[in-house]
Amino acid sequence: MLERVKSVIQQEMSGAGLPFVGFCIALNLTVGQVTAGLKIPLYLDSVGTVLVAVLVGPWSAIITGATANTLAAVFGNPVMIFFIPVVAVIAGFTALIARLGWFRTWYLVILGGILQGVLAAVASAPISAYLFSGITLGGQDFLVLYFRSMGNSILESVFYQGLSSDPADKTITYGIVFILLKNLPFRLLSRFRGVTNVRQALSEPSHDDRHPN
């Protein structure tokens, strides 16, 4: 099993896949610079993970998210390390729906984003509840406390808090990735394994596709 996973990782992270994973890890950690510069109140810290899940593959996406969370810990936010399983769920689910062709149609992208948000809330609730009793040193802790004061259990409170923010966050992330991929020329997309996840017919290049030489 382990050897099989290793061989899939080797296949996925060959050619452009490997440097692209490196870039997307960095993108997860630096996209905040763009949103902050434009004063847009979004974190979008999984844009890179979603890009890799669609274009490269599930294992590379898990590596992207896990490494980004580890580096976030290195840069001073240690709690992120414990949420690596949530990142794995996001990566796996995104790669699955991408393979099913959901990233070719806008309404399926929105549906996928909402489902992903619910799934992320379900996946992060036990970690927040059992490892941290719902408190992770983030702004959302106050929402958890609010739900608890309403008489809910820790697990329920964390789950409700997740439901109140994750679907919107993930739908926006999916939407951004969808628009970005729609605008990418075929000659670049075609260098990734996941090109068929984004464009249905390989014989339909976009108008800006030029001779690569």
Binding site: S190, L202, S203, P205, H211, P212, N213
Partner: peptide
């Protein structure tokens, strides 16, 4: 030929 819809390189 890079792809079927492009002329021979």
């Amino acid at each position: 030929q890079y792809s079927p819809h492009l002329p021979n390189a």
